[in-house]
Each structure stands twice: as structure tokens, then as C-alpha cells.
Amino acid sequence: MMNPEGALLVGISNPDTAARLVGLSASLSRTSIQLPAPGAQPVLLVHAVTVANQINLGIGSSSPEVIRARDLLQAAGEAARNRGQRVRAIVEVARSVEAGLLSAAESHNASLILVGYSGDPVRSEAEERFDRTMHRVARKARADVVIATFRRREHHSILVPVPEDAPLRLTSRLCRALEADTGAIPTFLHVAPRDASAGEARERVQARLASVFRGGEPQLRVVTSDDPQVAIMEESEGHDLVLLGPSRRPGLLDAVFSNRTRRIAESVSSSVVIGWGLAEED
């Protein structure tokens, strides 16, 4: 089971997205609702360097890639420290990226894994590889997994689609963190079937949101559509960031993104954050 007091592991591999991830991790750390003392969650910056099977792992630890990774992590670590985080930076030498992330998460007791994603709509070999990697991480990690794609520099509004029965623990935490990180206002979106009563759906969803977001009046928008995916994509036009919370983890035969999540993530022009919670409890 996930350790609620565990570290927040941030996969750092791209200098272009490192700063954004560090910023989000800082907010996530401060808004941790599972810790007795908010803000006490340590941040673990991890860069996985892969070594071929034909080479001893120990020898790989002195490769030039490790030196470059140290530079990258050092800059990211100093940025995180400047934000007041308790931070450690680790180059994880592994046979594969997923092995590195999972090993670091387990040995350092991580409760959340955060990684960045280029979000390029053109599928490249690197993106396919990323899919496979994150598929295994999301399937095997004993921690929440969050993937973030930053397409816009500034975020003023967040769209948070909420299915009626989806767990909201991680979604609410991400929502708080993004709100704190960007100052953006979240708008919750519920897509009800066309033949359903929008009013009743609004009441049910509003009640759930109120129980999760105590002390506030979450802004909820309910639309009716037979295709939630299209509805979400249309609604995202007016928002800078979309927060998606797939209802379940990928299985052995699933792609890391379900077709719906993948299409939304690749089609919208706004930034996207996707989170899979472990042992979801509302």
C-alpha cells in the first residue's frame, strides 16, 4: 500500500519542463492533505539513466550520461530548494527508465510519482517509448502517478472533468496544487448523457464536490452530450489547463492512456495533467 507520508518523486529528464515540474511538485508538497504537517512532504528528483544489459550496472554509474544528469538535477534541485522544499536529487542507474523510477519510488517510499510529457500530437518513436514506460510505471507503482504536459506558459483557468462516480481524492489534491501553483480558477465539468436530467446530475455532482472541497463553493458546469470526449474537448477551448483523472489504472493489455484520455490529451491545445490514484478513497 502507498505510504501516505512518503516522498513526492519527480522524474526529471528534460531541462525544458524541469522548472514547471519543480513548481508543481512544490505546490503538491504544500497542499498534501495526507500529511500531519502540510508542506512537510519531501521531494525526490530522479533522473533515470539506462544501461544496456551487456554492461555491468555499476560501470554505467560513471558514464557521461550520469554527469549530464547530475547537472540537470543540480539545477532543478537548487530551484526546488529555493522554493523551500526538502529536496534530494538522485541519478538512478537502471536497465530501463521504468525500472529506475519504480526502484527509486520503492526504495525511497514515494507516495506520488510526477513526470512530464512533451505532449506532441505527432506520435514519434520517443513518445511511443514514453507510453510504454509510463504504462508499466502506472501499472506497477505503489503510488499515485501524475503525468503533466505543459503547453501554455501561463494558466489562468483549469477545466476539471468529473464523471459522476469517479474517485476524487487525487483529483482534488492536484486541483489544489495547480490552483496554488498557477493561481488559476478551477471549473469542474460534468458531462451528463443527453437523456439524463442535467439538474439532477448537477445536484449529485455538486454534493460530491462539496464533500471533497469543504469550505468552498466549487464552480461546476454541467453539459449534456452523448460523447463526453467531444464535450470535454469543446469545453477545454476556454481553459488553459485540463486536469484528467482516469477512473482506473491501465491493465496489462491497455495502453497507458485510454483512447479517450489519449485523444483528449493529444487534441486539446491547453496544458494537460493526468493523475491515476492508488487505492482511491473519497
Partner: peptide, 28 residues
């Protein structure tokens, strides 16, 4: 082709200048 390239360890007392980056082998 480089191998065994090593950067210096942070000398004691210099930790405040920069951040220590640890290198771990994944025990997978």
C-alpha cells in the same frame, strides 16, 4: 569514448554551495 569519468565529490563543508546529487543503482 569515455569511461570512468568522474566528477569530484563535494568536499566537506561545501555543501551549501551546491546541491549534492546521489547516484544509485536501481535494484529492480
Amino acid at each position: 569514448v569515455m569511461s570512468d569519468v568522474t566528477t569530484p565529490e563535494v568536499p566537506p563543508g561545501e555543501g551549501h554551495h551546491g546541491m549534492d546529487v546521489e547516484v544509485e543503482l536501481a535494484q529492480s
